[in-house]
Design a protein around this nucleic acid. Structure first.
Lengths: 162, 162
DNA sequence: CAATCTACGACCATTTTGGTCTTGCTTCCA
DNA sequence: TGGAAGCAAGACCAAAATGGTCGTAGATTG
């Protein structure tokens, strides 16, 4: 539970890939703003993702202004901004919608049914923390190897089969 | 997305309720270890939750040793430990299973498909943080009003319709 | 104008979630 | 001592979310 959808996963993978391409293009001296553009098909093949599904995801991201698209031969998608300026939070929210840890935190801010869920206020804190955390991780952070990450995460807190 | 299931919600509500009953029973001077026991039906009625569904959830929690059950007339469920010693993390995991933010962090620790998800390592950090956060919030924390919570959470970070 | 690519919406399959029903066993108490 | 109250457990079904496909239309380039 409490997992990202595959779509969000795919989206993050694709952005990571495009970020890498942008770096390569920059190194090669390209100066167009579409540098590093790749087609949905290329990315799908690179990661063995269903191409049509990825296409839809990329369209979503383009609509959210995280990617810029270019139709036609040799068209494709490229990052709309530097990878360091795109947070994983934006990506996930664009694809999966807003994330609420409790089903009863609505847009109205309050619970729809009177005295039912008095519980949730402390959990809001968790919700906000997740938001903050994800906001602090950019697409650029995804491309580097995990070496420098804090040792804290090495411990197996999370395991055990369902 | 990234939301708790209703089952987990219900479970937390029920535990909160039982924690409150335990406090009341203690104040009344009861000294049995089953103090504050309530039937699944009672709790379900208090929160307008489908009784049979709640029953199943409570059974799950009992199996996880978070509750102790007592059959027979005037039987029911009570907290197996003081509310302050039951973390929301335990509850959620007992009901929803282990929580992995990415679909590809498996028990084996690595991704099942070779080069597919190089992305996820930074997200593990998020995963661990959520775990830590939830572990730090006990059922006892759920019963008090939200007054003392940090003002940080007041801001509407989380909203916007899907 | 043909090939390549995005854009978009309808559609279907699978999985997960939420919820119900049935049967059986335990405990209490009148 | 037997029935009412309650838990235990598993089969089962319905609804919703997710994952994935298809077809068509419009942009772009060579």
């Amino acid at each position: 539970m409490l997992r990202l959808t595959k779509k969000a996963d795919y989206g993050l993978m694709a952005l990571k890939y495009l970020a890498e391409q942008a770096v390569l293009a920059e190194q090669a001296g390209a100066d167009l703003n579409l540098s590093g553009a790749r087609s949905a098909k290329d990315i799908a093949e690179a990661y063995h993702i269903p191409p049509q599904l990825l296409a839809k995801i990329l369209q979503t991201l383009a609509r959210a202004n995280l990617l810029i698209s270019h139709a036609g031969t040799n068209g494709g998608y490229a990052l709309a901004r530097p990878a360091a300026d795109i947070s994983t939070f934006e990506v996930i929210r664009a694809i999966d919608g807003p994330l609420f840890i409790t089903s009863c935190i609505t847009i109205h801010g309050a619970c729809d049914l009177a005295g039912h869920c008095t519980i949730k206020e402390p959990l809001r804190k968790v919700n906000d923390s997740i938001t903050t955390l994800l906001s602090g991780i950019s697409v650029a952070d995804l491309i580097e190897p995990a070496d420098h990450l804090p040792a804290a995460m090495a411990g197996g807190l999370v395991n055990i089969e369902r």
